[in-house]
Amino acid sequence: SDGDWICPDKKCGNVNFARRTSCNRCG
C-alpha cells in the first residue's frame, strides 16, 4: 500500500508497513 517501504538491508529486503519506523523482520 501507499507509503510502504522495503528494508534497505540487502540481506533482508522485507516490505514494511508505512507506519513502521524500523524493519519488522530485522529491526
Rank of each mutant, 00 (worst) to 15 (best):
A18C: 00
P8F: 01
D4M: 02
W5L: 01
D9I: 10
G3I: 11
K10L: 06
T21R: 12
C26W: 01
C7I: 02
K11L: 08
G3E: 14
N14R: 06
D4E: 03
R20M: 12
A18S: 09
D9R: 08
C12G: 04
G13A: 14
D4V: 11
D9S: 08
F17P: 12
T21M: 11
R20P: 09
C12S: 04
N16S: 01
G27K: 07
F17N: 14
T21N: 14
C7Q: 02
V15L: 07
V15G: 06
P8E: 05
T21S: 10
S22T: 15
K10D: 14
I6Y: 06
V15F: 08
N14S: 07
G3V: 15
R20L: 12
R19G: 12
A18W: 07
C26T: 02
C26A: 02
S1C: 12
S1I: 15
C7G: 02
G13V: 04
C12E: 04
K10M: 14
D2V: 06
D9T: 08
N24G: 14
G13P: 03
A18E: 12
T21I: 06
N16D: 05
D2T: 15
A18L: 06
R20Y: 07
F17K: 14
W5I: 01
G27R: 05
N24K: 12
R19F: 05
R19M: 06
C26V: 01
D4N: 14
C7M: 03
R20Q: 15
D9V: 10
K10W: 10
I6T: 15
K11P: 09
C7P: 04
R19Y: 03
K11D: 12
I6C: 03
N16A: 02
C12Q: 05
F17G: 14
D9Y: 06
N24F: 11
C26I: 00
T21C: 11
D4Y: 11
S22Q: 08
D4A: 08
N24H: 13
V15M: 09
I6H: 05
P8S: 03
V15R: 10
S22L: 07
N14L: 05
P8C: 01
R20I: 00
D4K: 09
A18K: 11
P8R: 03
I6N: 07
K11A: 13
R20S: 10
G27W: 04
K10S: 13
W5D: 00
N16Q: 04
R25N: 08
V15C: 10
C26F: 00
S22F: 07
G13E: 02
S22Y: 13
R20K: 13
N16C: 04
C23R: 00
T21D: 09
